[in-house]
Amino acid sequence: METAAPANGYRTTRQLEKAKELPQASDALPQYGGHGYVPGSRQEEGFVDRISHLVLGVGSLDRSEHFYNDVMGMDIVGRGLMAEQRPHAVLRMNTGCMLVLVEDKNVVPRRLGTNAVHHAFTMTPNQYRRLLEKVKEHEIDVWVDRAQYLAEGEFNVNFRDPDDHALEVCCDAPEASEVILPNVGTIDCGPADSFKVGDVKLFKEADVFLVRVKEGFLAMSRWCTHMNGRIIWNREHWRFQCPYHHATFDRCGNATGGQPDIDALRLYPVNFSPEGHALVDTSQVIHRACFEPQQASKPPKVAVTA
């Protein structure tokens, strides 16, 4: 199948390689909407009730109907079903969302002066795996625009349809919301008295942040509770931040913005060796909605010698 897509010459190797990655086989329905947002997680009252359909101008109805049916996997509903004078076809997806293709000899796939106009679709892992087989079969150029900002279990692929409309397909596999264990047992984080109140230290081997708060020590999992992105400590803003979907957390792990209605960062138990070292047990995960003072492990009192 021919596409009007440009050559991939300006894409980075990472953007091209990432487009080959596959989720594990699964028919699990998506748990996230666009950019990791979870529809319905906040009050949605307004002018309209729900997304219904997308209308695209296409140069050839036959060619595009075949593309969206065969490659994109949509069901064909029929033709001539709208109050539209031009030839048009209606296709349906499993959530009831429709795609309407309208034949037009002067298609404008992307507005002048911007390359940002794009249309994104949702697939299950198995649907996504099938899609990648189809684009390979049809030799369609694919890449991932946000290659460095995909969480674990999150899959995106970008390509163009036969009229050069910019498309994106998104898939969140079950592993995007599973608890990831570091499997490194207990780690020795060094002398507890070397941490001052306010200190945040990353232990990369375990994806753990050890934080000294005034109540004691918190060992926090680095995996975001929204979707499995690795958070970073933003020293200048005193916040943990997920670069993938922009959730932020305070020093105690409480969610502070970016994504609504998410839990505090998960904890691992902190114990102390007889020598006063902080030991983080990464085999047990403690889930919590928000920080409470008793979650912090109090360091042993330092013996005062005369």
């Binding site: 329905l29 998506p30 909407g33 666009g34 950019h35 997304i51 359909h53 997308l54 994109m72 996997g73 949509m74 069901d75 349906r92 997806m93 499993n94 959530t95 009831g96 969302c97 507005r111 002066g113 911007t114 940002a116 106009v117 794009h118 249309h119 994104a120 679709f121 949702t122 697939m123 299950t124 649907q127 099938r130 899609l131 910019a166 994106e168 397909v169 998104c170």
Partner: peptide, 14 residues
């Protein structure tokens, strides 16, 4: 059943 769930998001320019 189709092999696609639905619309995910839209990028627009203003």
């Amino acid at each position: 059943m189709a092999n696609i769930e639905g619309l995910n998001h839209t990028g627009r320019s203003v």
